[in-house]
């Protein structure tokens, strides 16, 4: 049995938006620090830093997490998806298009996290009810829109994604 040794710094590998990456992290790094400062994926925003606002939401193995609360070492071997992955094909994702069309963005700070929570929802429930939508984005605070435009955008994206299938 190989015995793990305590480490201060370590090279870890994981997948970000489909790319295998290797990065040196220290014990105190958070996932959001690695994404923003080391990988320069600054689409993910830090709001409160204590898991209350959801601005830093990314998907970890398909489920939404607050990247400010995930120690970087826990990302090892995981599949991480950030907002940068949504338009990787060069074209906006239907969710992004719907957010623009419905003016679901005002200051825009919550948008990356909101999109990732919505993405996780639509993958699991392609035709969510309004209640499922509000529950799915309940961990994402938006201080501008009042949420109605965001919910409408997610409903619209769901419908569009269904017709394009």
């Amino acid at each position: 049995m190989k015995k793990a040794e305590p480490k201060h710094k370590r090279l870890i590998s994981f997948t970000v938006n489909g790319d295998d990456i290797e990065v040196e992290i220290s014990a105190s790094d958070r996932l959001i620090d690695v994404l923003r400062n080391k990988l320069r994926l600054t689409g993910t925003k830090e709001g409160c830093g204590i898991g209350e606002c959801g601005a830093c939401t990314v998907l970890m193995d398909g489920a939404p997490v607050n990247s400010c609360l995930v120690p970087a070492f826990q990302a090892e071997g995981s599949v991480i998806e950030t907002v940068e992955g949504l338009d990787a094909s060069g074209k906006l994702h239907p969710l992004q298009e719907a957010f623009v069309e419905h003016t679901a963005i005002q200051c825009g700070y919550c948008t990356p996290g909101m999109l990732m929570s919505a993405l996780a929802l639509l993958r699991e429930h392609p035709e969510p009810t309004r209640e499922e939508i509000t529950r799915a984005i309940s961990g994402n605070l938006c201080r501008c829109t009042g949420y109605h435009q965001i919910i409408a955008a997610i409903e619209d994206a769901s419908a569009k994604m269904k017709t394009t299938e």
Binding site: G51, A63, V65, N66, L69, G139
Partner: peptide
Amino acid sequence: VGSPQIRTR
């Protein structure tokens, strides 16, 4: 508990 994000972890 918390939010979907918190419940995931």
